[in-house]
Structures are given as structure tokens and as C-alpha cells.
């Protein structure tokens, strides 16, 4: 039972990361900076929480949850703005920019965490992990569906909303057009630059929350420098679930289960555990091979993914 609930909890970090990356990729930005952005999101969120907890005497649990989330979102969104500025305005190569941001983000997070002298993270973590008060009374159902902290519900809500916006609204149609064929979108009167900036900003912000959720919800407030690993897996999850956030809800739980399975299976060696941890990557590669073999156009990545756009270029 704990295996299932733990899988879901860690899965939600993947889900936030991959929903954010999906929004970004739908605009045609292959943002490989997501691991770094998630590090920044985690560190900024933790910093905000620490400041709040040390500066007030009466702690409101609501604010203790809300403030770090807002700070984390803004911090990571700024990383997204930096990415967009470099790739859209200055037309830098997307892959190189992304990788640079990953390195930068890990560095920033280390710097921020080093500055915090009096860590109150494990105290903070309690606010994030407390589930519905009546969950205990509902037995197995309560444990599987209602025992989680705020991030699990937030992640699923964001994924569902994203899925709806992408497929059912005009904004989603325009965003997908920008990622598929920016020249067409531009000729149709869609502001490509605006859409790319906003999508990358919002996507990065959401992904940053994934970093915070990993620290607060999964590690119970123990800071570890493993956030970027969650970021890489989130990018893999985007491919695994064919750029569909609603599918990613289930995909993230599978990834989560793979990620923690090694600690729940007894009697295997260290090497075997490490091999087990590779499973999500292997599955992602298989998915990539299968979709490129099947050639179904709906399942392909956005056609303009990774490509810069400049109107007067021909």
C-alpha cells in the first residue's frame, strides 16, 4: 500500500515537470533546461518558506503552503523568460541554451541553499504533506485517494487543465500551431513571439513546482542535490506519454513506481537496483522507436520543435 501511495507522490513531481515541459514543447521550444529550472524552483520555494517561517511568530498553514508555491513559480518562470530571451530574441541554439540553463540552475540552487543557515524545511514539509483530515477514516480508499498533500491534487488539476486548454480552446489551437508550423501561425495572425515567451514562462513555472514538490513532499524537507534527476525523467515522461498531459497522469505514476521500486524489493544487489532505476529511460527509448516506426502523425513531436523562427528568413 505504501508502495502505491509513494509511487503516486513521487510521480506527481514528474507530472508537474512533464506538464510544464509539454506546454513549452508545444510552442516549439525543446527546453532542456527543465532539470535546472526544477532545481531553481525547489531552491527558491524553500528559501521563501524559510524566510516566512523565521519571520512570523504565528504561522498560518495556508500561507506556509501558498507563499513558497508562488515564489517557486515566479523563480522558475524567470528562468523560462531567460530561455525565451536567448532563443527567441537573440536566436541562440535551443539545445545549447537549455543545457546551459540546466548547469546554471543547479548552480543557483546550490548557492541559495548554501545561504540558508537555519533550515526549517522538515517543519515546512508537514504543511505540504498533510492530507484531508478525514482520510484515515475511509480505509484503503482514503489512503489511496485522499491521504496526500496539496501537490498531488495540484499536479493532477494542472495536468487536466493543460490538457483541456491545449485541445479544446482557441489558445491551445494557436499554441499547437506555433509549435507545429510557426510560419503558418504567423501568416494567420498569431503572435508567435508572444506565444513562445508565455508558454515557456508558464511551462517553466509549473515545472519548477515539480522541484519544490520533490523536496517537500517526497524527501520530507531533506534537501538533496538530486532534483535534476527528476528533471531528466520529466523530459523522458513527455515523450513516453506522447505530449499528452492527461496520459502523463498515469505515465508519471508508472515512472514513480519504477523510480522507487528498488527500495521496496528486498534481496537484490546494489547493481540490480541501479539497473532497475534505468527502467524509465529504457521504456522511453522503446516508445520513441515505436512511434517513429508507426509514423502516425498525431503521435509525433511538434514539427517545429527545436527550430528558431524569424519571419523574413526564407
Amino acid at each position: 500500500m505504501t508502495f502505491i501511495t509513494q509511487s503516486i507522490r513521487i510521480g506527481m513531481s514528474f507530472l508537474l515537470g512533464s506538464t510544464g515541459e509539454t506546454i513549452t514543447e508545444k510552442s516549439g521550444h525543446l527546453n532542456l533546461g527543465i532539470p535546472g529550472i526544477m532545481c531553481v524552483g525547489a531552491a527558491v520555494g524553500c528559501l521563501a518558506e524559510n524566510i516566512y517561517l523565521s519571520s512570523v511568530s504565528v504561522i498560518s498553514p495556508f500561507l506556509a503552503v501558498l507563499l513558497p508555491i508562488i515564489a517557486s513559480f515566479i523563480g522558475s518562470a524567470l528562468m523560462g523568460v531567460l530561455y525565451s530571451f536567448l532563443t527567441v530574441t537573440l536566436r541562440a541554439n535551443q539545445n545549447v541554451t537549455g543545457l546551459a540553463l540546466t548547469t546554471l540552475g543547479i548552480g543557483i540552487s546550490k548557492y541559495i541553499i548554501d545561504q540558508i543557515l537555519d533550515m526549517k524545511f522538515s517543519q515546512a514539509s508537514k504543511y505540504f504533506t498533510s492530507g484531508f483530515p478525514f482520510a484515515d477514516k475511509l480505509g484503503g480508499f482514503g489512503e489511496i485517494f485522499l491521504s496526500y498533500g496539496v501537490f498531488v491534487y495540484l499536479a493532477i488539476a494542472i495536468a487536466l487543465i493543460t490538457s483541456f486548454v491545449l485541445n479544446k480552446t482557441r489558445i491551445g489551437l494557436h499554441l499547437r500551431a506555433v509549435g507545429e508550423n510557426p510560419a503558418t501561425a504567423d501568416a494567420a495572425g498569431v503572435n508567435v513571439t508572444l506565444y513562445r515567451y508565455l508558454a515557456t514562462m508558464i511551462g517553466s513555472g509549473i515545472a519548477g513546482l515539480g522541484g519544490l514538490s520533490y523536496i517537500m513532499d517526497n524527501l520530507n524537507g531533506n534537501w538533496e542535490y538530486t532534483v535534476d534527476a527528476i528533471g531528466w525523467l520529466s523530459i523522458a515522461l513527455v515523450i513516453f506519454t506522447l505530449w499528452k498531459p492527461n496520459l502523463a497522469i498515469f505515465g508519471s505514476i508508472i515512472f514513480g513506481a519504477c523510480y522507487i521500486a528498488s527500495s521496496y524489493i528486498s534481496g537484490i544487489s546494489f547493481a540490480q537496483k541501479e539497473i532497475l532505476k534505468m527502467f524509465p529511460y529504457v521504456v522511453t527509448i522503446i516508445v520513441l522507436v515505436v512511434i517513429s516506426m508507426r509514423k502516425k502523425r498525431e503521435h509525433q513531436p511538434p514539427a517545429a520543435l527545436g527550430l528558431p523562427y524569424f519571419r523574413e528568413e526564407r
Binding site: 508550423n181 498525431e298 514539427a303
Partner: peptide
């Protein structure tokens, strides 16, 4: 846009 239907392409923008 290749992966859009005719109607979606017409409504784009």
C-alpha cells in the same frame, strides 16, 4: 499545420 484538420486550420488565428 499538417496535424490539424481542415476546420482547425481555417479557424487558426
Amino acid at each position: 499545420v499538417d496535424v490539424f484538420s481542415a476546420a482547425e486550420n481555417i479557424l487558426l488565428g
